[in-house]
């Protein structure tokens, strides 16, 4: 094991001993200067290389990247999961509706008719028929660094327009495929508008089922029509309105809510919340 012996007991390069043992050659001053210069240059180069190697090894890893990609992955996964659940939910809701109508249609036709009417009013079933399509588009961006939020379609604009459409006699409204129901909310978050917590972006396509002609006339008289004129005139927001056949999806599955008179003792837990609501 001469190698291990060498490593353990003669760790210094043998060159040092040999160089010391060698007789010192006589050099002219010029040759000595050349030698010293060469040594200096090589030494500076080695020092530079070593120092930069150490510096680059000590540079901390960007910890953000790992966490970031992990989060991105998780977001993609959860979004896919949510989409799948949404699809299952819709399928089950359709099944429930089918079974419900099958059972009820034969047993109590009158109740079934009432139910169908209420479902249309509450927006829980899909609607199909003639109506209007109103499209709102954000104003073109001229300077990406300085965007005036008023040049975007905002939640308040959509609220005013949909309220105007309801007033004009709309039977059902959907924005970018999100059906508006009695409990829908239109809210703004940054550049997007949330309709029932689903983020939508421009262009906003408002589809309305109802008597197209009557609605157009009535809508023109509402304040919403004035508002749209202001948006187009002052903020260059694109507005287009046309009549046509539209198809609206059903809204979110309605949850059962109970209201009871306080103090009657019926459904105590629910009574507490309804008291808060009424007081």
């Amino acid at each position: 094991m001469s190698l291990l012996n060498d490593v353990m007991y003669r760790p210094v390069d043998a060159g040092y001993a040999e160089a010391a043992a060698r007789p010192v050659p006589v050099r002219t001053p010029a040759a000595r200067t050349r030698r010293a210069t060469a040594h200096l240059v090589v030494a500076v180069a080695l020092g530079l290389v070593t120092a930069s190697a150490v510096a680059s090894l000590r540079t901390p890893e960007p910890v953000g990247t790992g966490a970031r990609s992990l989060l991105q992955e998780q977001i993609a996964d959860r979004t896919a999961e949510a989409d799948a659940l949404q699809a299952t939910n819709e399928q089950l809701a359709a099944e429930v509706a089918q079974i419900q109508s099958d059972a009820l249609a034969s047993a109590d036709p009158e109740l079934f008719a009432t139910l169908a009417e209420l479902e249309v009013l509450s927006g829980s079933t899909g609607l199909e028929g003639s109506g209007l399509v109103l499209e709102l588009t954000d104003a073109p961006v001229t300077d990406p660094d300085d965007v005036d939020p008023r040049r975007r379609v905002q939640d308040i604009d959509l609220q005013i327009v949909t309220n105007g459409l309801w007033a004009a006699g709309a039977e059902g409204i959907a924005i970018n495929g999100q059906r508006l129901t009695g409990s829908s909310a239109i809210r703004g978050v940054g550049p997007a508008v949330l309709v029932d917590l689903v983020p939508l972006v421009s262009p906003y396509r408002i589809e309305v089922v109802g008597d197209a002609q009557a609605m157009q006339t009535a809508f023109a008289r509402t304040t919403a029509a004035n508002h749209l004129t202001t948006l187009t005139g002052n903020f260059e927001i694109g507005v287009s309105l046309r009549a046509g056949e539209v198809e609206l999806p059903g809204g979110t599955t309605p949850t059962l809510r109970h209201a009871v008179v306080p103090g009657t003792g019926v459904a105590q837990s629910v009574a507490a919340t309804s008291e808060e609501g009424t007081s």
Binding site: A43, T50, A55
Partner: peptide, 25 residues
């Protein structure tokens, strides 16, 4: 002179912090 040169080189390297090519990392 080698030690002095090494120290100078190291100081320059620490001061300039040149980037090492990724192939050599």
């Amino acid at each position: 002179i080698a030690v002095i040169g090494l120290i100078i080189g190291a100081a320059v390297g620490l001061f300039l912090e040149p980037t090492v090519p990724t192939a050599l990392q």
